[in-house]
């Protein structure tokens, strides 16, 4: 590269040749600050390497103790608990769907056009969307006593805002053109919804509900830990007494059930699509 060429390059694209030192400096400063903040947080949380190591050591012992897995002679009870967990998930999902459907219709911008009303409605759904089912379960179990009833309501309460929001979006995202096409054929508004909107929206909603059923099966297992019964309760009991051979057995069985449910729901969703 001779000086003449360099000068020529400088002349045609000056900015491209002079990297902005200010921008580089700011980028570096931001990176360093972020790293420092991360380390500070770790220190504040007392994430000491020593305790991490000893913890993993203990985990290893647990794992060694858990071999071979065993059902502890409680297989029928475990199976019933699994069925109960699924029952909770299904009941919770169905209730959530039934409540979320009208809410979702009201929440759709295309249905309720009034912007302030729409905003307030959506925002209030958003507030509740943050509350996990576990937090509901804690309070419902203490209200209704131990057992799956509180769990079902907790799952439903946690799902309703999210499902309603998804339903609203499905309705809003529906293509207007088929609806216009059906309307142009001179049918009543209800029939226009039936033939113009429903074919687009129902499969989307159904597949969302199936997703929620899958995730509720997982959440329902968790609710047992705070006293809603089912497989979570059986697991907690055994973790508390360090019976890891049974813990591993139950977790394995549970994972198989989850995988089976996911497969069924996935194939259903594919048929919907």
């Amino acid at each position: 590269m001779n000086p003449g060429q360099l000068a020529r390059a400088r002349q045609v694209a000056p900015e491209a040749l002079q990297p902005s030192w200010r921008r580089r400096l700011i980028n570096w400063a931001l990176t360093v600050a972020a790293a420092a903040a991360f380390v500070a947080m770790c220190v504040d949380l007392q994430l000491a390497p020593a305790s991490v190591l000893s913890g993993f050591g203990k985990l290893g012992t647990f794992l060694a103790n858990s071999m071979p897995p065993s059902d502890g002679g409680d297989l029928p009870r475990i199976l019933v608990a699994l069925a109960e967990t699924f029952a909770m998930a299904l009941a919770g999902t169905v209730i959530a769907t039934l409540v979320a459907l009208p809410l979702g219709v009201i929440g759709a911008k295309t249905v309720v056009g009034q912007p302030v009303l729409h905003f307030v409605f959506r925002r209030s759904l958003d507030w509740f969307r943050g509350v996990p089912s576990l937090v509901w379960a804690l309070i419902l179990v203490s209200a209704f006593g131990l057992g799956p009833f509180g769990g079902v309501i907790a799952l439903a309460l946690a799902d309703i805002p999210s499902l309603a929001k998804l339903f609203s979006e499905a309705i809003e995202n529906a293509d207007e053109k088929p609806l216009d096409g059906v309307r142009a054929a001179g049918v009543s508004p209800l029939m226009a919804l039936r033939y113009g909107l429903a074919p687009q929206v129902v499969p989307v909603m159904a597949s969302q509900v199936l997703f929620f059923l899958e995730s509720n099966f997982r959440n329902a297992a968790v609710l047992g830990i705070v006293g809603a019964g089912g497989i979570g309760f059986e697991l907690e009991e055994r973790i508390r007494i360090f019976a890891f051979d049974q813990v591993v057995f139950i977790i394995g069985l549970y994972m198989i059930c989850v995988a089976a449910l996911d497969m069924v729901s996935q194939s259903l969703r594919q048929r919907l699509a």
Binding site: M1, Q5, L6, R8, A9, A13, A16, L17
Partner: peptide, 11 residues
């Protein structure tokens, strides 16, 4: 130098 060459090729 590489950047300058790139500019010249673009030019």
């Amino acid at each position: 130098a590489d950047r300058a060459r790139a500019i010249l090729e673009l030019d």
